[in-house]
């Protein structure tokens, strides 16, 4: 299929009935200051940004939240339940997040493991069921497990968010085979989340068929976060356009790109006796 003149607006990302031009979601964590974070958000072109909900630190007046640092009208906020170890904790934090952000979107994270930050699939599914029933738009962070992805979609999650590699590791796509199955079987958008370290990995995720990617650490911890945010934006767009354009078939052997006939050759060399 030839799709000449692809425009950004031609290929929107649709989640829970909302339409987005950007397929790059970004986190707001780990930035050295809010000014750089704001610049990076703009450079990323992202329309969906994640935030967390935390207890106010007692005895520390003047603590700085993110409320004044983001232009809320410009973004779909995606509060997460990071730090929650059980479904019950996640549901509680989701309720707090909804009251705080006035959005019913939630990035569901249930993570009992502090070393690798790997999600608990059983508790994630249980929390998803409760939150969907309560009217939340649930975007669950999950292992790259095709069966779990199907179960989460069946209970009404708006997306699935399989990990590429552990959160913040920057190790890239270590779950490719499972991601390919999830993409092939998906009935909801697939957002590859966690572990992407460089823009080429975001492009690769999009080329394999992800509907979007979520990036935080790779941008926030770059030497130049603003430039890296722009690079990820371009990579996501390139990967998506590459997918739509349709890749060539792979071959076991080389296939010359120039004509094989009419090659200018030297006379056969004389072989000394």
């Amino acid at each position: 299929m030839h799709e000449a003149g692809l425009q950004r607006g031609d290929d929107p990302l649709v989640i829970a009935g909302q339409t987005f031009r950007s397929r790059l979601m970004v986190g707001t964590g780990k930035y050295t200051d809010f000014a750089i974070m704001r610049e990076a958000l703009v450079a990323s072109g992202a329309e969906i940004v994640t935030v967390s909900i935390r207890r106010v630190e007692l005895g520390a007046p003047g603590h700085v939240g993110i409320l004044d640092a983001i232009d809320f009208a410009s973004y779909q906020l995606l509060p997460n339940t990071a730090g929650c170890r059980t479904a019950d904790e996640a549901v509680r934090v989701a309720r707090l997040a909804r009251a705080m952000s006035e959005t019913n979107w939630v990035k569901l994270e249930v993570i009992p493991d502090a070393k690798y930050l790997l999600p608990d699939p059983v508790e994630t599914l249980r929390a998803a069921e409760i939150l969907v029933d309560a009217g939340f738009v649930v975007l669950p962070y999950m292992h790259a497990d095709p069966v779990l992805a199907r179960r989460l979609a069946e209970v009404g999650c708006a997306t699935v968010m399989p990990l590429a590699s552990p959160i913040g590791s920057g190790r890239g796509i270590l779950t490719r085979a499972a991601l390919e199955i999830i993409v092939e079987e998906a009935t909801v958008p697939v957002v590859v989340d966690a572990g992407l370290g460089v823009p080429s990995e975001a492009a690769a995720a999009m080329e394999l068929g992800a509907d979007a990617v979520l990036v935080n650490t790779a941008i926030a911890e770059a030497r130049d976060p603003v430039a890296m945010a722009a690079a990820f934006r371009k990579a996501v767009e390139a990967g998506r356009e590459g997918l739509r354009a349709g890749r060539m078939a792979t071959r076991a052997h080389a296939s010359p790109s120039s004509p094989t006939a009419g090659v200018v050759r030297m006379p056969e060399p004389e072989v000394p006796v």
Binding site: S52, R54, R55, L67, P79, L96, T217
Partner: peptide, 10 residues
């Protein structure tokens, strides 16, 4: 009583 606010996060 829980008092929470919005913070940076990924």
């Amino acid at each position: 009583i829980e008092i929470v606010t919005m913070m940076q996060g990924g």
